[in-house]
Write a protein that binds this DNA or RNA. Structure first.
Length: 420
RNA sequence: GGAGAGAUGGCUGAGCGGUUGAAAGCACCGGUCUUGAAAACCGGCAAGGUGGCAACACCUUCCAGAGUUCGAAUCUCUGUCUCUCCGCCA
């Protein structure tokens, strides 16, 4: 949600920011509505003050047993005007909100301008592509030939874009999530949370999934939605809170399933478990003071990267361009892991600074000496577990179809060196 | 699912339809005292908005939404949530 004051004072900058995010210039319209709204409000408030005054007089007259007929007639007159103006003001406010609710965050000045993922810029990379003496297989070929990944069974149960894992691969998934949580809580300073996987509308509005992206979400019953990421419950922990300054920074992590309808991705990545309706993820969320959010984004990125470094898997980090960023983001880094089977880099984490954009929607503030200030919120995958599983299978595969277990995970496997 | 109780400022908690934006306490901030701290005492302390260069004035907000009234934290209706008891159950 945008600060209307900022738009009033910087309409051109605002329109430029929207433009690089693929929106039409709209500040003129916003300010027009805003102007009518405020003018109405000013008149309305004068009338309300008048009404309050007369009512007070009536109160006094009545308590003295005096006649108040004249005053009551006056109020009656004012009341009609008040009702009309109230209605108008409400209409204008709703108009304004329905526009503001759907506009994305302003990009940070260091965000490259661009249209889509082709305009993203390499930020840094780590490691190098592994060499294989044989043709590396795709993760699903590995998993299916071992009989440990099964898509037919999943489709029988739930349809397309689901998967059933079994035995060692199932255990591998579990060990990955344990490793990530251990790392983030023991070394990276995050606090582990277990949170609901079903949330209500307000929470999804707070983080920016609603009202614009409802078709990407699954609903459950009348009033609940399945979370598309733990960012939603974790960030909303501070919704409608006024935090004490000494509570900041908050660094929270959680392991949850994520549910996405993948409405716009028909036909994309249909093979394998790269793009599923349900996957698990360890999420990182930071709530910080505004002046610290830029460095916190770098810190969060490092925390996410530390997982792949420990797993010894090659990756690169991309700075997303303005057109490829998510709705709430001011700046986003994607970590793309190398998948030898696919012979491609694929997104495995996305770390975003949402500045005060979500905080305004959530009304999350902290107390400083003389006023309350919106916090800054950040979120990042640390990492997507399903895709980490894919990365391990493809990077650690052996010619005989077996898979080596990354050293850091062996403690979860009784020091076993390979999957079989 | 059945029966009852409740929702008030950062927290706890008062509140006859009209000087209640809201008592009191805690927390927090400033001061006095003290070598320093604690204690004690004094003072300050809700949020959002509109107008104004500003001082400041005004409006709105006591879970949410409708309603009654000249006037609602206080009365009525609906919804949401919380708690207690009973039943059922992971």
């Amino acid at each position: 949600m945008h600060n209307i004051n900022y738009i009033r004072e910087n309409p051109i900058e605002f329109d430029n920011a929207m433009k690089v995010r693929g929106e039409n210039p709209i500040s003129t319209k916003i300010l027009e509505i805003d102007k009518v709204k405020r003018e109405t409000q000013t008149v309305l408030q004068t009338l309300l003050a008048e009404r309050n005054n007369i009512s007070k007089i009536i109160g006094k007259l009545k308590s003295n047993n005096e006649d108040a007929k004249e005053e009551m007639l006056k109020v009656d007159e004012i009341k009609n005007k008040i009702n009309t103006l109230k209605e108008l003001q409400q209409i204008k406010e709703n108009e304004l909100n329905s526009i503001l609710n759907r506009l994305p965050n302003i990009p940070h000045q260091t965000v490259p301008n661009g249209k889509d993922e082709n305009d993203n810029v390499l930020y840094r990379e780590w490691g190098s592509r592994p060499n294989f003496d044989f043709k590396p297989k795709m993760h699903y070929e590995i998993g299916e030939s071992l009989g440990l990944i099964n898509f037919e069974l999943a489709s029988k149960l739930s349809g397309s874009r689901f998967v059933v894992l079994k035995k060692q691969i199932s255990k591998l998934e579990r060990s990955i999530s344990n490793f990530m949580l251990d790392k983030h809580t023991e070394e990276n300073g995050y606090t582990e949370y277990s949170v609901p996987f079903l949330v209500k509308k307000d929470s999804l509005f707070g983080t920016g999934q609603l009202p614009k992206f409802d078709e990407d979400l699954f609903t459950a019953g009348e009033n609940h939605w399945l979370i598309p990421t733990a960012e939603v419950p974790l960030t909303n922990l501070v919704r409608e809170e006024i935090l004490n300054i000494n509570q900041l920074p908050i660094r929270a992590t959680s392991f949850t399933p994520c549910f996405r309808s993948e409405a716009g991705a028909a036909g994309k990545d249909t093979r394998g478990m790269l793009r599923q309706h349900q996957f698990t993820k360890v999420e990182l969320v930071s709530i910080v003071e505004p002046q610290h959010s830029e460095e916190e984004l770098e810190r969060m990125l490092n925390c996410a990267e530390s997982i792949l470094k420990d797993l010894q898997i090659h990756y690169r980090v991309m700075t997303l361009c303005s057109g490829d960023m998510g709705f709430s983001a001011n700046k986003t880094y994607d970590i793309e892991v190398w998948l030898p089977g696919e012979n491609k880099y694929r997104e495995i984490s996305s770390c975003s600074n949402c500045t005060d954009f979500q905080a305004r929607r959530m009304n999350s503030r902290y107390k400083t000496e003389d006023k309350n200030t919106y916090v800054h919120t950040l979120n990042g995958s640390g990492l997507a577990v399903g895709r980490t599983l894919i990365a391990i299978l493809e990077n650690y595969q052996m010619e005989d179809g077996n898979v080596e277990i990354p050293e850091i995970l062996r403690k979860y496997f009784n020091n076993q060196k390979t999957l079989l």
